[in-house]
């Protein structure tokens, strides 16, 4: 089973509880206007890997709390992500998924297979008019947090919102979490 990825980050504290391995999938047909990651929309082959490879990489990162799937649209690669989530959960890791779909839209068997191995689901389109940097784990105020297992309590997701900047050895910036555009020197949306 293979996944088409946009990128990964070994360790982040801005994408769910604790330190997490973050995986951005490639491909999203929802194309929310104002989305932070439009480069992850095209359904083109980008960084295709087997779930065996990704599982090994995730398990090689020490002292992480879990994994976070975001994108791109994770539910458009639900079967492979469900298989991967199932494997990493067997090693005690938790699973957080960010999706542009509302929970009610996730009715397919494939979607259910991923939901069944998800601890926290953050669901809903990104709506630029409701953009926020004040709500934890959400980019726009309409998005909903669903606790799908009892691994975490709602207090886990009510902490102060965070974002994170990784400055690579070559000076490249990776920005993750829910930052305001001004953080990178871009003007705020009017």
């Amino acid at each position: 089973m293979r996944l088409n990825l946009a990128r990964t980050l070994d360790r982040s504290a801005a994408n769910g509880p604790g330190e997490r391995y973050v995986l951005w999938v490639q491909g999203c047909t929802l194309a929310c206007p104002g989305c932070w990651n439009p480069d992850t929309w095209p359904r083109v082959r980008r960084d295709e890997r087997t779930i065996d490879e990704i599982e090994r990489e995730i398990l090689s990162v020490p002292n992480i709390e879990g994994v976070t799937f975001t994108g791109g649209e994770p539910f458009q690669q639900a079967p492979a992500l469900a298989a991967l989530a199932s494997r990493v959960r067997a090693h005690g890791l938790s699973v957080v998924v960010f999706t542009g779909y509302d929970l009610a839209e996730l009715r397919s068997a494939a979607a259910h297979s991923l939901l069944a191995v998800t601890d926290i689901l953050i669901a809903g389109r990104y709506i630029a008019a409701q953009s926020t940097t004040d709500l934890p784990l959400r980019g726009s105020a309409n998005q909903q947090i669903h606790m799908l297992t009892d691994r975490y309590t709602t207090s886990t997701t009510t902490g102060p919102p965070t974002c994170e900047v990784h400055i690579g050895a070559d000076g490249t910036l990776i920005l993750t979490g829910f930052p305001p555009p001004e953080l990178l020197g871009h003007p705020a949306d009017p």
Binding site: R11, A13, A14, T133, D134, P160, P161, T162, C163, E164, V165, H166, I167, G168, A169, G177, P179, L183
Partner: peptide
């Protein structure tokens, strides 16, 4: 972490 600088930004509420 190695050559990577990681800045975790916490919003004061």
């Amino acid at each position: 972490e190695g050559d990577t600088v990681r800045l975790v930004l916490l919003k004061r509420t």
